[in-house]
């Protein structure tokens, strides 16, 4: 009698042990997987965060560029000026992706855009550097490229000091469109002019020839990614004198979503209370 009971409990124990073992092993496996996945994601997040990277002409917006780029390097091989660099480990950039360092070598704006043509996945997107010609056919136009935007450090640009320099202006492939020179009176001397370069974001392609040409020790005009260099006004600020700008209002709901302690009150009430 006693033996039989022991046998049964032994069986149960073995069974529960088997089940227990299976459960524990599954949970351990999952734990391992989740840990690995989180570390992996963290690593990618850290690398993705690098904002100051200039992509080849025709590059899709950074997020979609990063997902489509297979890191094959064919754009780098296609560049006749060897201007493109493929990020290697230790570059602090997403590894294997192409980028430009204009101070070392800028983009020389090839008309046939060989780097874009070499891309097998569409990370460099033809449609972003094409326009319709007179017959409605798509035609490449390198001047549509938005690699980045040139930004001037007015404190170190010697032209802004009043010394004559127009290196960036002269070298700009879109001279008088992307960079213009503004004449102002030099108040310090009272008899000279300041010939100051000014960048225009609508035309600037970010090729970086200006950064390369800049005569100061560290370039005082340099290319930044547009998302870094430029602000963005909300659709509630409209240049009312510009019909094109009015179009930004289309589809914008009149309801405001911004709620602050002040805006939660009725404007009249807020004025009458007199606590401003």
């Amino acid at each position: 009698m006693g033996d039989a009971r022991e046998e049964i409990s032994e069986e149960i124990r073995e069974e529960t042990n088997g089940r227990r073992k299976f459960l524990i092993e599954t949970v351990r496996g999952l734990g391992f997987a989740v840990t690995g996945g989180l570390v992996w994601s963290g690593f990618i997040e850290g690398k993705k965060a690098y904002p100051f990277i200039l992509r080849p002409p025709g590059a899709a917006p950074e997020e979609s560029f990063l997902v489509r780029c297979t890191k094959c390097g064919m754009c780098v091989e296609a560049c006749p000026y060897d201007a493109l660099i493929l990020a290697s480990p230790g570059d602090e950039r997403p590894v294997g992706t192409p980028y430009l360092m204009p101070r070392e070598r800028p983009c020389y704006m090839c008309k046939d855009i060989p780097c874009m043509k070499a891309c097998p996945t569409g990370a460099l997107d033809k449609s972003l550097v094409s326009e319709k010609d007179g017959h409605g056919k798509a035609k490449l136009n390198i001047n549509l490229a938005k690699i980045g935007m040139a930004v001037i450090d007015r404190e170190n640009c010697i032209a802004y000091w009043g010394i004559q320099c127009d290196a960036c202006y002269r070298v700009c492939p879109l001279i008088d469109k992307a960079i213009t020179v503004e004449y102002t009176r030099n108040e310090r001397t009272g008899k000279h002019a300041i010939l100051a370069p000014v960048v225009h974001s609508d035309a600037c392609t970010g090729c970086g020839l200006c950064e390369r040409a800049c005569v100061t020790k560290k370039a005082s005009i340099f290319v930044l990614p547009r998302r870094v260099a430029m602000g963005e006004s909300s659709e509630r600020y409209i240049r009312g004198w510009d019909i094109k700008d009015e179009q930004r209002l289309e589809g914008v709901s009149p309801e405001t979503k911004t709620v602050t302690p002040r805006s939660s009150k009725d404007p009249l009430e807020y004025l009458n209370k007199g606590d401003f």
């Binding site: 992996w40 690593f43 990618i44 993705k48 997020e63 990063l66 997902v67 297979t70 997403p94 590894v95």
Partner: peptide
């Protein structure tokens, strides 16, 4: 993460 994960490492 919206990127090809293994290709990053």
């Amino acid at each position: 993460m919206g990127v090809a994960a293994f290709e990053w490492l």
